[in-house]
Simulated scan of single mutants.
Amino acid sequence: MSRYGRPGCDDAEVAPGRAQAQRLRDIVVIRRVRDRIDREYAQPLNLEALARGANMSAGHLSREFRRIYGESPYAYLMTRRVERAMTLLRRGDLTVTEVCFAVGSSSLGTFSTRFTELVGVPPSVYRRDHSRAAEGIPPCLAKQVTRPIRIREAEPPQPDLA
């Protein structure tokens, strides 16, 4: 009999099953954290508060979030904020500073830097040039068409060999 109290079941067989069950529980918890970020993107959120809400350590939450979604919770939060900012800037009735604070950023400089990294142009240029970018497109499609693409994910320019 094994230490798990089941005849014919050794530790090597049970441990992988327990590890898999824990991974599945972590995925559910991390999905809830992501959903919370999506809902509360305009609120002040920090890793410690998110971790407390998930009953995890901040380090474990950060590692698992990155493993599951490919980016840190902070990067995900900033992407959500930039997406919302893009929508507000396209409307054209708010200044960049008003948009910055409306999406939960507390620093115009940090917001502008992150916006430029994700979108490729500063928020003021985006506001000026894209105020009619989604005009005539149903909102359900506009979100996909106008979604930011990280510069590092964009195709590198091909050299002109001619």
Rank of each mutant, 00 (worst) to 15 (best):
A42Q: 05
S124K: 12
R23Q: 05
L118P: 05
D93T: 09
S105Y: 11
V33C: 14
L24A: 15
M78Y: 05
L50E: 01
S57V: 01
F101M: 13
P123L: 06
F65R: 05
T110F: 08
V119I: 08
G59R: 14
Y76G: 02
S107F: 15
T116V: 10
Q43T: 13
R34F: 03
A58K: 04
L108G: 09
L77R: 02
G109N: 13
V119F: 03
L118Q: 14
R52W: 01
Q43M: 14
G92L: 10
E117A: 08
E98S: 09
R84G: 00
H130C: 07
R81V: 01
Y41L: 07
S131K: 11
D129P: 06
G104Q: 08
G120F: 14
L108H: 10
S72P: 05
G92T: 14
S105F: 13
G104L: 05
E64F: 00
E48D: 11
Q43H: 12
P44V: 00
E71Q: 12
Q43G: 09
Q22L: 04
N55I: 02
P123G: 05
A42K: 06
T110K: 11
I68Y: 08
R81W: 03
I37D: 12
D35L: 13
D38E: 14
D38G: 10
Y69S: 00
N46Y: 13
P44Y: 05
Y76P: 00
L88G: 03
D93A: 04
S105W: 11
V96Y: 07
R31F: 08
